[in-house]
């Protein structure tokens, strides 16, 4: 039922329409350090909420952006990245995306292209960045340039969840961009996109039951 996803309060995504609620998603391969980055940023506040049925983890954070207090929900995958694809509800209403790879494993860098493509299918306009994690393992990597995302103008960060380098900076900048995106949908194009999305949603409402079943059928291990 449509109520199925709605009946879990954490997954009621209507709240992301309100001004004070922001949704930021993390993407990237298994073991690149997505969860460790969340943990490093949130420190004592780190209270992940496991939604194992959906193979995802939510982290709630309150931030002051500009002079506004906003409630930020960070969405992290808990194994869904295995399917090299995320359920549409993961992207739904997201206001920014943090894409992570592991500087020690080339394959995780190569796979960014697939993650980015899927992101843009659902969210053509939201701010996104590329994060090179684990630079503590070999600082020399920071002398190299990684060109993925340059063309699209995506900000790039060298970070380490282990020693903390640039983690807080990256999260703060992304929260700011998410709020900016939300407050001033950048241009006419964006408004059109939003209309399209809403339209798409209305259309989908009717068969969200089928969507749900499809999710379960595709990934029985997830339950």
């Amino acid at each position: 039922m449509a109520g199925d996803i709605g009946s879990i309060p954490e997954l009621d995504q209507k709240k992301y329409d309100s001004d004070e609620q922001v949704k930021i998603i993390c993407l990237g391969d298994s073991a690149v350090g997505k969860s460790k980055l969340m943990e490093r940023f949130l420190m004592d506040e780190y209270r992940p909420q496991q939604l194992s049925t959906y193979a995802l983890t939510l982290y709630k954070h309150t931030a002051t952006v500009g002079n506004k207090t906003v409630a930020v929900d960070f969405w992290d995958t808990a194994g869904q990245e295995r399917f090299q694809s995320m359920h549409p509800s993961y992207y739904h209403k997201a206001h920014a995306c943090i894409m992570v790879f592991d500087v020690q494993r080339k394959i995780t860098y190569k796979n960014l292209a697939g993650w980015y493509k899927e992101l843009r299918e659902y969210r053509p306009e939201i701010p996104c960045c590329v994060v090179a994690n684990k630079i503590d393992a070999d600082l020399k990597v920071t002398e190299r340039s990684f060109n993925f995302g340059k063309k699209q103008g995506l900000p790039f960060y060298f970070v380490s969840a282990a020693d903390g380098t640039n983690v807080v900076k990256m999260f703060r900048e992304m929260m700011k961009r998410a709020v900016d995106y939300k407050q001033n949908p950048s241009d006419f194009m964006d408004e059109v996109m939003q209309e399209l999305e809403n339209f798409d949603l209305e259309k989908k409402e009717g068969n969200s039951e089928a969507d749900e079943d499809a999710l379960k059928a595709e990934s029985p291990e997830v339950v």
Partner: peptide, 27 residues
């Protein structure tokens, strides 16, 4: 311990990354 550790790597001379070499459409 410092919570917000920032380091700027932008200015160092950057060699092109070999991971970009067999570049395809996505890169």
């Amino acid at each position: 311990f410092v919570y917000d550790v920032e380091m700027d790597f932008g200015k160092t001379t950057q060699e092109k990354c070999s991971w970009d070499e067999e570049s395809d459409d996505g890169f």
